[in-house]
Amino acid sequence: MTLSRRHLIAAAAACAAPALVRAQQPHHGHHSGQFERLNQPGRMDLPEIHAQQAVSDSPAPRAARAGVWRPRAPLPIPRTEMAWAAAYRNRVHLVGGYAEQRVDKPYHHAYDPVTDRWEELPQLPRGANHVGVATLGDHLYAFGGFIEQNRTPHDEAFRFDGARWARIRRLPEACGAMACVALGQRVHLIGGAIGSDWRRSIDWHIVYDPASDRYEKRQPLPTARDHIGIVVVGPSIHVIGGRVDSFHTNSSLHHSYDAQADRWVARTPMPTPRSGHGCVVYRGQVFVMGGEGTNRVFGQNEAWDPVADRWVSHAPMITPRHGMGAVVVGDEIIVAGGGPQMGGGVKSAINESFTLG
């Protein structure tokens, strides 16, 4: 199912209306000095504009068990726009992003929730933001990304073996902000954005085969978009939300992909249209948290039950933000870094975890 731009904008605006209730400001006292501006060095506290833009009220019914968020050890360096994170060898891995007044940093940090510690690991051979990452077998993969602020992508790709990065075959086209996930013995790369002066979303869907070091085309995403959430549920890939060219046209779309039939199917839309959000599978359900919109930074934590085909809302994030890394390790959802306001002007070292208890 492909929606026209006019219908997409109208649907997003209608769905977003209930989410304009302001988020209550947390009183956990863990925000001090965990933020930094992109254009100015020096740590700072939570920016005042966060109170105006943060929203956490979901139109979805509340879950019977709300769950609990708690602060964890902050990132060593405030970061945002890593795009996504990946679980690799039981740790959270954050690759690339904005940091230290640059948008093309090659940083690579790993977080162990058991010890509550961060470690700096070998850096990417090429720094970028909005890098696509996925884990397959005993390797962590990184694809593309932007070398300017959310634009001007590159086509390089890399594989990490736990000790060092190695180059793999370049992408067929330079791209950033794509969604990546492993299914079977291949990595699927879906959606994303291209361009510099004229940035636009694309509907591409390719798969990378590590055995042959080659890419193959698959059925394109029904609606071109980037900054989307992606997970695997059983034999299917699910792609949720995202933006069409800009966060002014955020989407609530939810599609699943059947790899055997090479076919996309429209599923029940996400309650809160957004982009730059976290998306994970936790206890058999798809959880979506955070994200960005026009003058909005979301704290909504909504979950889709594949069996009941129903969305519900859980306890919202302590610190609403977007462009962060969200990963499940053990029995926790770890959400690290991200921007506490619209755009990439402020980075955070915030690290929080969620559990249903």
Rank of each mutant, 00 (worst) to 15 (best):
R102K: 05
R200N: 06
R310Y: 14
G127W: 04
F287V: 15
T294H: 07
R89P: 04
T80D: 09
P271A: 09
L20D: 07
T135E: 12
P273N: 03
G97K: 02
A66H: 03
P26M: 09
R267H: 10
F160Y: 15
W165D: 08
S32Y: 11
A157H: 01
V68C: 09
N301T: 15
A60E: 10
G29Q: 13
A261K: 14
I318T: 11
A19R: 07
L221H: 07
V328C: 08
E173K: 11
T80R: 12
G144I: 02
H108R: 02
M342I: 01
R310M: 11
V280W: 14
H93E: 14
H238N: 04
A19P: 02
P306W: 06
H255R: 11
Q285D: 13
G293M: 03
M289W: 13
F146Q: 04
I240F: 07
M178K: 00
D116N: 14
W198L: 15
G330S: 10
A142I: 10
L136H: 05
M44E: 10
K347C: 15
H227S: 07
H130K: 10
Y215T: 08
A303C: 13
E48N: 01
W165S: 05
A64D: 02
A182W: 11
G337Y: 04
A224F: 05
I194H: 01
T80E: 11
I77T: 15
L183I: 04
P47E: 06
V286N: 03
S275C: 10
G96A: 06
V288W: 09
Q185S: 15
H205A: 08
V231N: 12
E48A: 13
I147E: 08
D262E: 10
S4Q: 04
L121H: 03
R79A: 15
A87M: 13
R164H: 11
D112N: 11
L38Y: 00
R102C: 05
P273M: 02
M82Q: 15
R89H: 13
P271G: 10
R296K: 01
V131F: 09
Q24H: 09
V265Q: 15
N351H: 13
I49H: 00
G184A: 08
M317S: 06
D226C: 05
K105I: 15
V231G: 01
G33P: 07
R243Y: 00
H277P: 00
G330T: 08
K347D: 14
H314K: 08
K217W: 04
R214Q: 14
L183G: 03
A315F: 06
G132W: 02
E100V: 14
G241R: 08
G325A: 13
V265F: 14
G299N: 05
M82Y: 09
P61Q: 06
G293I: 00
M324H: 12
D45I: 05
R91C: 13
